[in-house]
Simulated scan of single mutants.
Amino acid sequence: MTFLSLFITFFQIGLFGFGGGYGMLSLIQHEVVTNHHWMTAGEFTDIVAISQMTPGPVGINTATYAGYTALQNEGASSFLCFLGSCTATFALVLPTTILMLLISRYLMKYKDNASVRLVLDSLRPAVVGLLAAATLLLMTKENFGSPQENAPEFFLSVGLFLLTFIGAKFFKIGPIKMIVVCAGLGLLFMRN
């Protein structure tokens, strides 16, 4: 039954996940953590971190790891977990593939149509909103710690967040360099 739920859930996310992988993160988190309870918020955060570090689109990578983790948390075998990964990934990509095949044929023909322009222009703010929601949903105690429980870890996390934001926004430092620098600083300062 979990396979059917995985398929339906990730098919819907793929169908309504405008804005690419980062836009999908808030939808994925809501479904896998809040709605289906397939994993904890901490596990989801780890999945997003791994998805960003591995090659490929973050949304598809997240679906792959989420499908695996959902079945792993139910005690399934490695093979069934692998099938869970395949199910979630296929379901996420399927609606996009179908829509792109249908839309690509007509988009070039009607791209200058006023109604089509209006729809595309209206989707832009929605995409920005989904990206903002994904960012805010990841600003949790699991990611930043708590000043009451571990003040040095909390302030280091906030510092790394600000360093990454400033480096990417103002100095145009690439994400790979930022990940390496932050991982190094995390190793250096969070040693026990």
Rank of each mutant, 00 (worst) to 15 (best):
M100N: 04
A134W: 01
T140Q: 05
G56S: 06
S157V: 14
L92T: 05
W38C: 02
S146F: 10
G21W: 00
G186H: 05
A168R: 06
F7P: 00
S77L: 04
S5H: 15
G56D: 08
F170M: 07
P147H: 06
T62N: 05
A63P: 00
G17C: 06
N192Q: 14
D46S: 14
G23L: 00
L160I: 03
L131Q: 04
V33F: 01
M39W: 01
A114E: 15
T64R: 02
T34D: 12
L185E: 05
L92F: 09
I176A: 10
G67V: 07
L160A: 02
S157L: 12
S5N: 10
E31Q: 14
A76K: 12
T9C: 10
I47G: 05
E153L: 13
G23R: 00
T62F: 01
Q29M: 09
M1Y: 12
I98L: 11
T96N: 10
P55S: 01
Y65K: 10
Y68P: 04
R117E: 14
G17Q: 05
M39Y: 01
S77A: 03
K141Y: 14
M139N: 03
E74H: 05
G174F: 06
G19F: 00
I50E: 15
E43Q: 07
F155G: 07
K172S: 09
A134Q: 04
T54R: 09
V32D: 03
T97N: 11
G19E: 02
N35K: 12
F144S: 04
T135D: 02
L120C: 07
T34F: 09
V180R: 12
N150A: 06
S85G: 06
A114Y: 12
L123K: 04
I173D: 14
Y22C: 00
R105E: 13
R191H: 13
G17L: 06
C81Y: 10
T2N: 13
S146W: 07
M39V: 02
P57H: 03
L94T: 05
L99C: 14
A76Y: 12
L188S: 13
F44K: 10
T140H: 04
V33A: 00
N192S: 15
L123S: 07
F16P: 06
D46I: 13
V116S: 01
L163C: 08
P175M: 15
V32E: 04
C86G: 15
G20Q: 02
L136C: 12
L99Q: 08
N35V: 14
S146G: 03
T96H: 10
T45G: 03
L102T: 07
S78D: 09
T64I: 04
S115H: 15
M1L: 11
G17P: 01
A91H: 06
C86V: 13
T2H: 08
K109H: 10
S77N: 07
K172H: 11
F79M: 14
F82N: 11
R117W: 07
T135G: 01
P152E: 14
T87L: 05
G184H: 09
P55V: 00
L6I: 03
N113M: 13
Y22V: 02
E142G: 09
I179G: 06
L163T: 11
R124C: 02
L83M: 13
F11G: 03
Q12R: 15
K141E: 15
E31L: 08
M100C: 13
S51H: 04
I28G: 00
F161Y: 04
G129M: 07
I176W: 08
F165I: 08
G174R: 13
V127S: 00
